[in-house]
């Protein structure tokens, strides 16, 4: 039963990833694209945690943590670029 639920949720998150990808391509503004990237990384954290549960291995935790850290930093850097036109001043 848990395997079925995991597969179903995997499908749901794949749909969520596709929707965010559509927004990333569609635009219309730069801020929308940053938001889409932000959503994409959070969705991929969820996907990796699901994969870890499906495989029954706790090793994927580190990958999820790293994606969370790098995702936040990249969102902040992109916003800073829009705000100032430069990342490291």
């Amino acid at each position: 039963m848990l395997k079925t639920a995991l597969l179903l949720v995997n499908f749901m998150i794949a749909m969520a990833l596709l929707l965010s990808l559509w927004r990333l391509i569609q635009g219309p503004s730069l801020a929308d694209r940053i938001l889409a990237l932000d959503t994409l990384y959070i969705n991929s954290i969820a996907l990796i945690i699901l994969l870890g549960m499906y495989m029954g291995s706790p090793l994927y935790f580190e990958a999820a943590l790293l994606i969370a850290l790098l995702g936040f930093v990249s969102t902040a850097a992109l916003c800073k670029y829009l705000l100032r036109g430069d990342i490291i001043e």
Partner: peptide, 19 residues
């Protein structure tokens, strides 16, 4: 299973809102 489904549902709703 309940928590997994709830989580997936909220993620999907978030992305539907985004689109």
């Amino acid at each position: 299973s309940f928590f997994v489904l709830l989580g997936g549902l909220f993620m999907l709703i978030g992305s539907i809102g985004l689109a």
